[in-house]
Design a binder for these strands. Sequence first.
DNA 1: GGATGTTGCGAGC
DNA 2: CATCGCTCGCAACATCC
Length: 1082
Amino acid sequence: MDDGEEEVNSNYNSFLRSLDNDSFISHITSLSQGHLHVRSQEFQAVSTPTKAAATTAATSTAAASFDNAVSSDPFDDSVDEEALVRIARGEYNPTPLHSTQLDQRKDLAEQPQEQPEQPGTEQLEQSEQLEVQPVKQSIGQLHGFGDYATYFHSKHLKQQHQDAAYLEWERKRLKTLPKPIFTGCTIFVNGHTNPSINEIHRLVVLHGGKFISYLSSKSSATHIVCDWLTPRKSDMFKNCRVVKAQWIVDCVEKEELLDWKEYRLIKEIAYDQQRLQFGAIEEQTEEEEQNVHDDDNDEEEEEESHFVGDSNEDDDIPVIDSIPEGKGVHKVKDKYVLDARHPDFLPNFFANSRLHHLSVWKADLRLKFLRKVIKEKPSRFHKTQSDERIIMHIDFDCFFATASCLGHPELDIHKDPIAVSHGSRTSDVASCNYVARSFGVKNGMWITQAKQLCPQMKIIDYDFAAYEKYSNEFYNYLITCDCFDVILPVSIDEVLVDATTYCTNHSVEELCKTIRKDVFTLTKCPVSVGVSSNVLLAKLALRRAKPDGYFYLQPSETTKFLQDVKIRDLPGIGRSITERLSHELNQETVNTTDILPLPKSRLITLFGEKTGTKLYQYVRGIDDTLLITPTTVDRKSVSVDVNFGIRFEKVEELDDFLIRLSKEMYMRLINLGFCGSSLTLKLARRRQDAPINPPKFLGMGRCDIFNKSSRLGVPTNDWGVIGNEAKVLYRMVNIPVTELRGVGLSLTRLVDIDNVKKNRQGRLGFKKGDVNDQFKEFQQQQVQFESKLRSKTPSPKKRIGITKDHFEKRPKFSHNLDDIDWDVFESLPSDIKQELERELSRRRMVAVKREPNTKAYLQQLLPTQSGTTKYVRVIESPTKRQSPKKGRPSSTKPSRSVSPVKLYEPSQSYDSSVLAELPSSIRNSVLKDVEYTHKVKNLDLVPVRDKLLLLEKQRQVEVKTVDEDWVARQSKVTETPKFLDQYVSMRDLESRIKEWVTMSLSQGGPHEDDVKYFGEYLDEMLSRQDISRVLLLRKCIDTNLELQKSKLPFVEESTRSFILEGIQDWNNQLAEYIDPKLVKYI
DNA sequence: GGATGTTGCGAGC
DNA sequence: CATCGCTCGCAACATCC
Ligand SMILES: Nc1ccn([C@H]2C[C@H](O)[C@@H](COP(=O)(O)OP(=O)(O)OP(=O)(O)O)O2)c(=O)n1
Ligand SMILES: [Mg+2]
Ligand SMILES: [Mg+2]
């Protein structure tokens, strides 16, 4: 609408931002003295020639409106033009609407007749024939109405139907059915198990249980059967009942439903597990009001007490997925929608946050590949670094979309437009396939917009477990195929490899083809490959390779290739630099060629030493980044951020949330083995011009970011310390809780937890009196805190309060805010005033504005020693600044002298330090005790400590030193299991197999025991999800048998038939012992 | 001028 | 009716001594 207005303001704002604090205040002062015209003068002076200013204005408006149109989404995937061209050429057929629908209908109609991969037993096949008709009909009908959303429901029903038929069949066969021990249980099997998924399926159904073959947010399982979980999945399933497959077997054998907890798979994360041991005694204490308020998982809670009370409730087994309604502080509209006030919000959020998963996956991968390097001989590293290298950048095509789609056989990824998303409206499109992209849909878009562009687009669910699985396959393959000097994971779907050595005597193109073919065979997901001589060019080549292709950018073609590359596409060049450059060059889009004329020195002045140099080199296709796997994990920080669902009304709600965040942080720290000594609280505050409710449901909208950090003194992972420090930090930035849209914690200055332990031990050894030690730390904290309080002295109110912080950090202003005449300021034109206010607020120069009743604005809620809480009113003063160094005598705090302030949540302070001293292997298992202590408010901490020490003693056997053995066991993905008690590489295994096959054929076939052992070995690999290797080894046998067969014409006739018999024997044994294990992976 | 802290940007996305 | 907008490192800049 009023574009002109917008334009001016946007530019005015960037002008304001470009000023340093001093000039900024000076600017306000001059304004508030009435010189309104100064504004435009200054403005133009800064933004260079007038014409430039005009263009900039145009660009930034364009950018702004683009922003609005696309969503306020921070990501910015640009359209892949190349891909669109391909699509237009028909290589990626975007089928017209009607024909798409027809195709779908056809696919779906056929679907029910296809044999489902899952229930592979003959019984099920028979049952299929018994009763499939009605189901088929119902599916057909649903299709008729085009209701694909319910398709899976009916698929589910179909399975139930099959199961019923199977049961019927068994009844006829056996005349009677076994005891229905699993009545009321709904079982889901995850990954490879022993017995197999099919067998479990059969057993469960046979014994009265319900079996489901996939978990969705809508379906619900009472138990998840699983023998091995990736760490990531442990996280996903941490609130579920995950049991080992043996549970099923034993239940069946004993003919009763055994306590699943005896078979629990996830031990380390379930806080409450240990409670059974205490529960009998302390049952009453824990159902106090504290419990209701402070519990992280009410559902688990109840369930546990049921079991303690004794198992008489087969019928009302709580359901894993059900969201607890009603109790506690949560926001229910029509459905269960939690905001950050609800205790279940956090685990739920992280379990479903794609960005969280992506981040964690990335970190995990780095760690894994680091370990690989440690294990490997370093020889490869020193190889010819100076030569021209072959760098490949490999990336899955629309990864989430493809992977999720594999769980939706009724959809055709090549024809149907598909997007992965949680919901509708303002839900993000995480990934959309290339058909959807041909309509203009992009990753990161909101559903509303995507639907506008492509109304028939199908939305499918996330399937994080699948992404992990395919990625695992992918990475394992890369390791296994042994062609790379370096493998550097970039993300879950993306990797950089150095193939120089291999390509000295192999064709690059062939390698690309092979990789693409193999990965597709393994995962059914296409990857694209970009190849060139350095990381930069490989990355750029990848863009051209997509989708489903490869592109080899020869060094000689670099210059030509770079001509069409926009600087935005260069790695390391983001939005900010792009904007500044387009401003600088006075043109809308900037190509690499536009930068060529600029001298290096100019780029350096503009963007700084490093960035300038990098830019200078990149536009010339130069990139000397060495592709070397880092050899050390030197993590610098651990952080937990939530910028979704943050809606608080009361400070206490935030306090509770901060504690929960700290616990999350604590868990991560424990898992990573770090303590840290510097804490930063990051807050996102609704921008004053942003609506209270941002366009995105429960989103953050446009915000200003505030950071506040403090030294903790000693490295810690204690959630009590972290949480309470966070509360203190919050009280130092004066932001009303209602304005918060995002909260994050970040711990830096990390120290390896074992070092902390070592230091502590050293100290303890010297002093012995550990409790005193603790107390001293405690006091020290208190002193710190008191001095913090003291530095805030009450003083006469100002019209606009300035935080003490401001003065501490910027004491040398020549222009003080006090120079500003606020009355004149108030009378400035409202748009200008607004911009100034926003900028003031962004610079944290304004504490609280427009809050007439700010008298109590800084309430300090602190737990006191007695357990009650006290409110301390603090009014910050802009005029009086204490010298921060000298702790001043305690004169000014009348209100807060009664009792010493306790900095910690009840519990925590003691046991956590004990915890830090435990060997990492048992640390996890004691967490629940800590949690327990907290819950029951057991103030007698000594027994807990004793208990921990005892536990440590008991477990001491398990605590191995770090030797070759240990290292080998750490990396599940990259290692092969021990073969005949030896550590072996894939190469070793392959040559052994060759030997074995050759040798066995001279004896008329393999020994049965050997085949069985081989089978067990594969099982072991399978349990590590190492499917590609397993298949490789299996294939290796075939290859060698083929090899022997091919030699047959050259041997004597008698030998020939003998060998043929041997081969036959091989095949028989493989079919009996090996292939059944693999059938579902082929 | 170096050590140290804070902020903003960019990478995954 | 909704939705799951995270996490890390580095470079530039600010400040302190
Ligand atoms: N705004 C975004 C962008 C990506 N992703 C997720 C989903 C993607 O599948 C995955 C990988 O990101 P890519 O950038 O590799 O995008 P795609 O793999 O989806 O597409 P392509 O690589 O073919 O461009 O990350 C996301 O959640 N949100
Ligand atoms: Mg991808
Ligand atoms: Mg990617």
